[in-house]
């Protein structure tokens, strides 16, 4: 194991960095997009409900790999050129945002109606009430499921391996297929994933305790 790492640390660190970068970007944007669609679903406009529903059901129910390949193969063919990293990160963002939308919507609906009523009666607009009163409370409720989504996101970033995104999984595959030391290579790769996911999972638990 040490040998694999010593001989290939450059590729592995590059992969680790790409996985981390992809995860951070996808986490940020899926949180923003997911929250936006969650708000769509609680707004009193039927059109937005339908838009939200369609978006969520489409991206939640298609395999991530299909979405990733679509952006890697189909989009460059007809629209704009995307490298593997970008295509994979976009796919991962859209896929994860559908799950986050469902989670955040549940959180918003768990906040007592009186909170919104109090804020509206106090003169605030819907969006002011949402931003200052409802969302902070909604996120507090959904930290545990959101933590799951974030961990899944990091692991799902391995979809980059299929679209030449030069992530950790991609580098692992490359090393394994040239050295044939599959056993040690995949263990090293697994450990490197744990270096991202374990602190993340502990951080989410810490947040849950702190905000409870």
């Amino acid at each position: 194991m040490i040998n694999v790492f010593m001989q290939h640390w450059q590729e592995l660190l590059l992969g680790f960095g790409n996985t981390l970068l992809c995860s951070v970007i996808a986490l940020f944007f899926s949180l923003v997009i997911g929250s936006a669609f969650a708000i769509f679903e609680v707004l009193p406009y039927k059109v937005l409900h339908i838009v939200g529903r369609v978006y969520i059901e489409v991206f939640r129910n298609i395999p991530l790999l299909v979405i990733g390949m679509f952006f890697y193969v189909v989009v460059p063919q007809f629209f704009v050129t995307l490298d593997g990293f970008t295509a994979g990160t976009i796919g991962l963002t859209l896929y994860t945002s559908a799950f986050i939308a469902e989670t955040v919507r549940a959180g918003i609906q768990a906040v007592d109606d009186g909170q919104m009523e109090g804020a509206r009666a106090n003169g605030m607009t819907f969006m002011q009430a949402m931003w200052h009163i409802i969302l902070p409370q909604a996120f507090r409720y959904v930290i545990p499921p959101l933590g799951n989504q974030f961990i899944n996101l990091v692991k799902n970033s391995s979809v980059l391996a299929f679209v030449a995104g030069f992530d950790l999984m991609y580098q692992g595959d490359a090393i394994a297929s040239t050295t044939f030391d599959t056993f040690n290579t995949y263990i090293v790769v697994g450990i490197l994933y744990l270096i991202i996911t374990l602190p993340l999972s502990y951080y989410m638990r810490y947040l849950e305790k702190k905000l409870a």
Binding site: D112, G114, Q115, E117, G118, A119, R120, A121, N122, G123, M124, Q128, H132, I133, P136, Q137, R140
Partner: peptide, 30 residues
Amino acid sequence: RKDVGMVFQHFNLYDNKTVLENIMLAPKLV
């Protein structure tokens, strides 16, 4: 609603804000 306030049976104070913030938020934003 700026000019007509309402007091509710179940108070509807903002649970994520302190008492002082509860009072200051709408005047600040609105």
